[in-house]
């Protein structure tokens, strides 16, 4: 049993994109705020703080997770993946990211991190997705700029590319 007092800050440790991290948080601190303001991982964005817009979606222990509906304290010891961990290296983009850029699947880019995380997770489990499947998945995200279609197109393209035997290498 672990009991954390409301008025104090407590150490929270987990693995972020493969690296151990640690910082302090009050019990009430949301994972989204912890990632952004305690760890400086500002790629995960906050759009509604009531679990609807999807901008803050991250992956916790293999589960898609609204980080605004999750306490930092809840994920102590977990493995977390965020948009910062998607690219193969700092100066290169992954296949899905490239497909987004190629298809103009983002404009302001504010909602994009959450959408990328949902797709990254989904394409891992569904290597041959349908448009309907992707639309169903992404109905849990709000985007105000793109009208969505280029996002769907990018996802289908990325899936096809990931499934093909000759994987294109990523570029910047």
């Amino acid at each position: 049993m672990t009991r954390l007092n409301s008025n104090a800050r407590h150490a929270v440790r987990f693995t972020l994109n493969g690296k151990p991290v640690e910082a302090e948080a009050e019990p009430r601190m949301l994972l989204s705020d912890f990632l952004r303001h305690q760890l400086g991982a500002t790629g995960t964005h906050v759009g509604c703080e009531h679990g609807v817009c999807g901008a803050c979606t991250v992956i916790v222990d293999g589960m898609l997770t609204r980080s605004c509906l999750t306490l930092a304290a809840q994920v102590d010891g977990c493995e977390i993946r965020t948009v910062e961990g998607l690219a193969p290296s700092a100066d290169r983009l992954g296949v899905l990211q490239q497909a987004f850029r190629r298809n103009h699947a983002l404009q302001c880019g504010f909602c994009t991190a959450g959408i990328l995380m949902s797709l990254d997770h989904y394409l891992g489990e569904n290597p041959a997705p349908t448009e309907a499947g992707i639309r169903d998945l992404l109905s849990g995200h709000l985007c105000r700029c793109t009208g969505y279609t280029p996002i769907i197109q990018a996802a289908l393209e990325a899936a096809a590319q990931l499934a093909s035997p000759t994987k294109e290498t990523s570029d910047a």
Binding site: H45, V83, L86, L93, Q97, F100, R101, L116
Partner: peptide, 20 residues
């Protein structure tokens, strides 16, 4: 329709929005 110069940062979590 060239690729956007804005996108690499936005797709990698390196955007610089006001709260970032």
């Amino acid at each position: 329709s060239i690729e956007r110069v804005e996108d690499a940062a936005l797709l990698s979590g390196r955007g610089r929005f006001i709260d970032d």
